[in-house]
Amino acid sequence: MPINPRDYDLTHLREMADGPDGDRPDGADRHGQPDPLDAIPNAPESESFRASLYRELMPISRDDTTKPYLSGMPEVQSAEFLIFEWLEYLLLHGGYRGAMEALAYYEDVEWITGSVRSELGEYLMGIDHPAHDGEGLDVDDHLLSLVYVVKLDAMS
């Protein structure tokens, strides 16, 4: 995989999302001005997407930002919906093999534990998916995965 998520911890991503002027998650800075990325009409789509992912991470507070971020699966029913949504996204973009490799990689960089990876792998086996390999996962896909990991951890 081309990026190294090990370089990104939750605190760093929150700082990046906060921006130099203390931008708020609602898209305006502390003075009520719009987000600069939203104001640029020809900004690359990926920059807007990344900015929205950073905004999603900001309001999720954690007292403990040590790795692994997700050490156990939440035992609430709403978590299952989030899990299936995430895994279907990984399948769509990376295929079954890419999704399994991504989960193994997230374990390696300590976003999830081995037991969580095993459970997610079992979920993957139960999802019907097309027999294509997907387009491959990129930086934005991994950032989105981090948002899912943090959201699932917040449900625990």
Rank of each mutant, 00 (worst) to 15 (best):
M1E: 09
P2A: 15
Y8D: 15
Y8M: 15
D9R: 07
T11M: 01
H12F: 14
M16N: 00
A17K: 12
D18C: 13
G19M: 09
G19K: 05
P20W: 15
P20C: 05
P20D: 09
D21P: 00
G22K: 09
P25K: 10
G27F: 03
D29H: 06
D29P: 01
D29N: 07
G32N: 07
G32I: 09
G32Q: 12
D35N: 04
D35F: 02
P36Y: 13
P36N: 04
P36D: 11
L37D: 05
L37Q: 12
D38I: 02
A39L: 15
I40R: 08
I40T: 11
I40P: 02
N42P: 02
A43Y: 04
E45F: 11
S46F: 15
S46K: 14
S46N: 10
E47S: 08
E47G: 02
S48N: 00
S48W: 08
S48E: 01
F49G: 02
F49N: 01
R50Q: 06
R50P: 00
A51G: 03
S52T: 07
L53R: 06
Y54W: 09
Y54F: 13
Y54A: 00
Y54I: 00
Y54S: 01
R55E: 01
L57W: 05
M58C: 03
I60Y: 06
I60T: 04
S61C: 03
S61K: 03
R62N: 00
D63T: 13
D63N: 12
D64L: 04
D64T: 04
T65Y: 09
T65R: 09
T65W: 04
T65F: 03
T65N: 13
T66L: 07
P68G: 07
L70E: 05
S71L: 08
S71K: 13
M73Q: 08
P74S: 14
E75F: 00
V76L: 06
V76T: 09
Q77L: 15
A79K: 06
A79P: 03
E80M: 06
F81W: 06
L82P: 01
F84M: 00
E85H: 06
E85W: 14
E85S: 02
L87I: 10
E88S: 02
Y89M: 12
L92Q: 15
L92S: 13
H93I: 01
G94D: 11
G94P: 08
Y96K: 04
G98D: 03
G98L: 01
M100P: 08
E101Y: 02
Y105E: 13
Y106P: 04
Y106C: 11
Y106V: 03
E107P: 08
D108F: 08
I112V: 14
I112A: 07
T113I: 11
S115E: 15
V116W: 12
R117D: 04
R117T: 02
L120R: 08
L120C: 05
E122F: 08
Y123R: 15
Y123I: 02
L124P: 08
M125D: 12
D128Y: 15
D133P: 11
G134E: 14
E135P: 00
G136P: 05
G136K: 03
D138A: 12
D140S: 13
D141P: 03
H142D: 14
L143Y: 04
L143N: 06
L144I: 02
L144A: 13
L146D: 01
V147Q: 01
Y148H: 11
Y148G: 04
K151R: 14
M155Q: 09
S156F: 00
S156Y: 07
